[in-house]
């Protein structure tokens, strides 16, 4: 069992958990992820390691409530125990010799981009960071990134903070303005990553994307997470999650992410039903 030593709701959609897992904390690197199975009946969900402390032996994860499993995970509190917590999985992000780098995080992807930005910085590269969200309320880790980044650019869809518009517009402006990046790293919704990759391809800018295909075991055993990279099949959990953004078959990735749409809806309805009945019980008591 793995104890939750800290919890914070960052905003209405995003939650942070700190979990005691010394074994993982002592062997993980930026870009790797864990898989959590909260209880006997829960799914195995992959979540990126957002931060860690090998001395204190904890791992931090930040996740967005998107469906039944993430809503359920957000119901856990400090002091509660998670049944299974395994990692580090995947290959670390390769930050050495990247040169001048721009790191782009969209939505919850900001949480994943943070340790990576730090790793690029620690490897001695100049690092600019662009983050984007629907509105200022949903922006996370701004302070942390401000410390890491040489320049931090903020975009919101509604203009409630920073630039009004998408991260892609900010990126193109910087490139056109002569930023001369050698590497671009991006993580966020696939559609955003796809558009980032489309822009950087025009400018021949090497682009690393962190893919979030549906996973099960995370050890290369099941093939669920397979993605098509330059016509070849790769497993995101062992060959990735980082891949060359210009070689990804985005349409296929997005299709595969919809595989369980109907089941996800059913699971969410089930979750809501359970919660209502529990709340009623609580109210009645």
């Amino acid at each position: 069992m793995y104890e939750i030593v800290d919890k914070k709701d960052l905003n209405a959609e995003n939650t942070m958990l700190k979990v005691k897992a010394p074994q993982i904390a002592s062997s993980c690197k930026a870009g790797q992820f864990i898989i959590v199975r909260a209880n006997e009946k829960a799914e195995r969900i992959p979540l990126t390691i957002a931060d860690w402390d090998s001395k204190e032996g904890w791992i931090q994860i930040i996740f967005q409530k998107v469906g039944a499993s993430t809503y359920e995970l957000a119901d856990y509190n400090k002091g509660d125990k998670l049944m299974d917590f395994v990692g580090p999985l995947g290959l670390p992000t390769h930050a050495e010799g990247a040169g001048k780098t721009v790191v782009i995080g969209g939505g919850l992807g900001i949480a994943i981009a943070t340790p990576v930005a730090r790793a690029y910085k620690q490897a001695g590269n100049h690092v600019d960071v662009i983050i984007g969200a629907r509105n200022s309320e949903l922006l996370i880790l701004e302070k942390e990134l401000d410390k890491i980044a040489d320049n931090l650019y903020i975009c919101t869809d509604d203009g409630s903070k920073g630039r009004e518009g998408f991260v892609t517009e900010q990126l193109e402006e910087l490139i056109k303005g002569g930023a001369e990046y050698k590497t671009c790293f991006t993580v966020g919704p696939p559609i955003m990553m796809m558009f980032v990759a489309k822009i950087t391809e025009k400018y021949d800018l090497k682009t690393v994307v962190s893919l979030n295909s549906i996973m099960l075991d995370g050890t290369g055993m099941c093939g669920a997470c397979r993605v098509s990279i330059g016509g070849e099949i790769k497993l995101a959990c062992v060959d990735g999650p980082d891949f060359d953004g210009h070689l990804v078959d985005w349409e296929n990735l997005m299709h595969r992410l919809t595989a369980y749409k109907d089941e996800e809806r059913e699971a969410m309805e089930e979750y809501q039903k359970k919660n209502e009945c529990c709340n009623e019980k609580k109210d009645g008591a």
């Binding site: 829960a42 039944a68 595989a259 369980y260 089941e263 059913e266």
Partner: peptide
């Protein structure tokens, strides 16, 4: 045993 168990299969 879905949806009691949370992992789906088609």
């Amino acid at each position: 045993l879905f949806p009691d168990y949370k992992t789906p299969v088609k």
